[in-house]
Design a protein around this nucleic acid. Sequence first.
DNA 1: TTTTTCACTATCCTTTTGTATACTACTTAC
DNA 2: GTAAGTAGTATACAAAAGGATAGTGAAAAA
Lengths: 121, 121
Amino acid sequence: MEKTKEAKPHTWDECTKSILPVRDALEVLSGKWKLPIIISLMFGNKRFSQIAKEVPGITDKMLSKELRELESNDLVKRTVYDSIPVVVEYSLTEYGHSLEIVIKTLRDWGVAHRKRMMVES
Amino acid sequence: MEKTKEAKPHTWDECTKSILPVRDALEVLSGKWKLPIIISLMFGNKRFSQIAKEVPGITDKMLSKELRELESNDLVKRTVYDSIPVVVEYSLTEYGHSLEIVIKTLRDWGVAHRKRMMVES
DNA sequence: TTTTTCACTATCCTTTTGTATACTACTTAC
DNA sequence: GTAAGTAGTATACAAAAGGATAGTGAAAAA
């Protein structure tokens, strides 16, 4: 009964079935800093200034903003210890750790990509 | 001979060994549109307006810009057929196809993520 | 003859992202 | 007393990304 003019089989629906979940993932992980921060936390719980040292180039403002977003998406946990100078520790949640395979895949591709760039130059 | 004050073992070098390749990958793939465009081309070679239809929400301007960038990174190939109305076909290069596993991993995570969001709401 | 298709480009605008610099308030070390 | 480390926030600004709308020129369809 529909009047949509489709004469030939289209890849449209299979295509959006891939695009939509990828967009969901990108919404949470997009930007220059979120994955590097998560990687840094994969090597252990860290304090604010430690992360700042391990993620090259990030400013305090960006780190603060990105950590807040990651926390609100339940990827990172923020724990405050009211010790003599207050200490704040960031850690990956279990859900955050589920990104390990995504990061490994991306890192492997990045390594191959860099190798390729070197050969070209 | 170096005066850098490092008393305890640091995760710094292992950490940057992961961060740098991931940044290399992000540089090529970052933004809202590049991966969706690549996904669309994984389902077959397409013309400009076909891609525009399959990637929901993209404008001509963005599509044009992103295709140029993907082409300059050797992920996408642009072929002009000088037929009666000129036809331009876009296809993935072999290198572009090497992103299949990255996209699959990201899509799987995105599917799980969406499922998780639904439960929460 | 007007509209549509094709593959874009041009212009203007808003939003997001990122940078730089300074500042808070407390404590320990020199 | 001064500096450095703790975890950030405030302000101002620049740059990049993205969105909305319109236009191009040729040909084919209505």
